[in-house]
Every structure is written in C-alpha cells, then in structure tokens.
Lab assay of single mutants.
Amino acid sequence: AQVHVDGVTYDFDNPEEAEKFAREMAKRKGGTVEVKNDQWHVE
C-alpha cells in the first residue's frame, strides 16, 4: 500500500500500517486523508 504525503510516496507491505501512518500524518498536519485507487493521500 502506498501513502502520499506532500509529494513523497511511502511504501508499506501492510495496508493496516499504511492506514495508521496516513491517519497519524494527517493528524500532525491538521489535514485530511483520502483513499484513491487503494492509495492513501494525506492533504
């Protein structure tokens, strides 16, 4: 699973880890999390 944050792509073998990371980053940035094509996007 991939997580996109500020133009940087992070690869995770485990989708749950990807989701956890995406939500944590969004919380830190005060942003939102979107899922597109099985990829997490932190805005």
Rank of each mutant, 00 (worst) to 15 (best):
E34A: 14
D6V: 03
W40K: 05
Q2F: 08
V33R: 00
W40V: 05
T9F: 07
Q39G: 15
A1T: 14
Y10K: 01
D11C: 15
A26G: 03
V42G: 04
E17G: 03
Q39E: 10
A18Q: 00
H41A: 05
H41E: 05
A26Y: 02
V8F: 11
F12R: 00
E17W: 04
A22D: 01
K20I: 10
F12W: 01
D11Q: 13
A18I: 00
Q39T: 11
V5I: 12
T32P: 02
E17V: 06
G7T: 02
Y10T: 01
R23Y: 14
G30S: 04
V5D: 03
N14P: 00
F12N: 00
G31M: 10
Y10E: 01
K29W: 15
M25D: 05
E34H: 15
A26S: 05
N14F: 08
A18R: 02
K29A: 09
V3P: 00
R23C: 14
A1V: 12
F12S: 00
E43T: 15
D38L: 11
F21Q: 01
K20S: 11
D13V: 11
H4F: 13
E19K: 05
K36T: 08
A22R: 04
A1K: 12
T9L: 08
V33L: 10
D13R: 08
W40S: 03
A1L: 13
V35S: 08
E43P: 05
V8R: 11
T32G: 05
Q2I: 09
E24Y: 08
K20H: 10
K27A: 14
E16H: 11
N14L: 08
T32M: 07
H41M: 09
P15H: 11
K36C: 14
D11H: 14
Q2L: 08
Q39A: 12
E19W: 06
V5G: 01
G7N: 06
D38E: 10
E34T: 15
K27E: 14
E16F: 11
G31A: 09
V3F: 01
T9K: 08
R23H: 13
K27M: 11
V35W: 15
A1P: 12
V33T: 05
M25L: 11
R28T: 12
K36D: 08
K36N: 09
G30V: 03
Y10W: 08
Y10Q: 00
D11V: 14
T9I: 14
P15N: 11
E19R: 05
F21M: 01
V3T: 01
D6L: 05
V3Y: 00
A22W: 02
K36W: 11
Q2Y: 07
T32N: 07
V33K: 02
E19T: 02
V3G: 00
E34V: 15
H41T: 12
V35G: 09
G30H: 08
F12T: 01
G31E: 06
E43V: 15
H41P: 03
F12Q: 00
F12I: 01
E17H: 06
K29N: 13
W40H: 05
E34K: 14
T32Y: 14
K20W: 10
A1G: 08
N14S: 13
G31F: 08
V35K: 14
A26Q: 07
H41C: 14
V35H: 13
V8N: 07
V42Q: 04
E19P: 00
D6N: 09
P15L: 08
F21R: 01
D38H: 13
R23K: 10
F12Y: 02
A1Y: 15
K36H: 12
V5L: 09
R28S: 13
E17Q: 09
V35F: 15
W40T: 04
M25F: 06
R23P: 00
R28H: 13
E34R: 14
Q39H: 11
T32W: 15
M25H: 06
V42R: 03
F21Y: 06
V35R: 13
F21L: 01
E16R: 10
E19F: 05
V3R: 00
H4N: 07
H41R: 08
A18E: 00
H4T: 11
K29M: 15
Q39F: 05
V8W: 09
Y10I: 06
A22T: 00
G7I: 02
G30Q: 06
G7H: 04
V33G: 03
E17P: 00
V8P: 00
D11S: 14
N37K: 07
V3D: 00
F21D: 01
N37C: 12
A1F: 15
V33I: 09
E24S: 05
F12G: 00
E43R: 15
N37I: 07
K36M: 09
Q39Y: 06
G7K: 03
K36I: 14
D11W: 14
K20V: 09
A22E: 04
D6W: 05
V3W: 00
D13F: 07
D38P: 04
E43N: 15
R23Q: 10
Y10N: 00
E16G: 08
Q2E: 05
A26R: 03
P15D: 10
V35A: 06
D38W: 08
E34W: 15
Q2M: 09
K27Y: 13
F21G: 00
E24N: 05
D6Q: 06
E17L: 09
H4A: 05
Y10A: 01
A22H: 01
E16V: 12
D6S: 07
K29V: 15
G31Y: 14
G31C: 14
Q2H: 08
R28G: 08
A18V: 01
H41S: 07
Q39D: 06
D38F: 11
K36V: 13
H41L: 09
Y10P: 00
V8C: 14
V5F: 09
D38T: 06
W40A: 04
E17C: 12
Q39S: 10
F21V: 02
D13P: 11
D38I: 04
Q39V: 15
D11E: 13
P15R: 13
E43H: 15
E34L: 14
K20L: 11
A26M: 03
R23I: 12
M25I: 12
P15W: 13
E24M: 07
R28E: 14
H41Y: 15
N37D: 12
D13H: 08
Q39W: 04
D38A: 10
G30R: 05
G30N: 10
V33E: 04
Q2D: 02
A18W: 01
G31N: 04
A22K: 02
A22Y: 03
H41Q: 07
D6I: 02
E43Y: 15
V35Q: 12
V8Y: 10
D11N: 14
W40R: 02
P15Q: 10
K36P: 03
V3I: 03
A18H: 00
K20Y: 10
T9N: 04
D13W: 07
T32K: 12
D13Q: 10
V8K: 12
V8T: 09
K36R: 14
M25P: 01
Y10M: 02
D6H: 07
D13T: 09
K36Y: 12
F21K: 00
E34M: 15
Q39M: 14
A22V: 02
D11Y: 15
H4L: 12
A22M: 02
D6Y: 08
E24A: 08
E34I: 15
G7F: 03
R28W: 13
D38V: 04
V35L: 14
A1M: 13
T32I: 11
F21W: 09
A18M: 01
H4S: 06
G30W: 04
F21A: 02
Q2T: 12
K20R: 12
D11K: 13
T9D: 03
V5A: 06
M25K: 02
E16I: 12
A18G: 02
E24T: 04
N37V: 06
R28K: 14
D38Y: 10
E34G: 10
R28I: 15
A1I: 12
E24V: 04
W40Y: 12
Y10H: 04
F21N: 01
E43I: 15
H41K: 06
N14W: 07
E16A: 12
D13K: 10
V42E: 02
A26N: 02
G31P: 03
K20E: 12
R28F: 13
V5H: 06
E16P: 02
E16Y: 11
Q2R: 12
V33W: 05
A22L: 04
N14G: 07
T9R: 12
K36F: 11
K27P: 01
A18K: 00
E19G: 04
R23V: 12
G31L: 06
V33H: 04
G7M: 03
A26I: 07
G7V: 01
H4R: 08
G30F: 05
N37T: 05
A22S: 02
P15G: 08
H4E: 06
K20Q: 12
V8M: 11
K20T: 10
W40N: 04
R28P: 05
D6E: 07
A26P: 00
T9P: 04
G31W: 14
V8S: 06
K29R: 10
N14T: 13
V35P: 02
G30D: 08
H4W: 13
R23T: 10
E19H: 05
N37R: 06
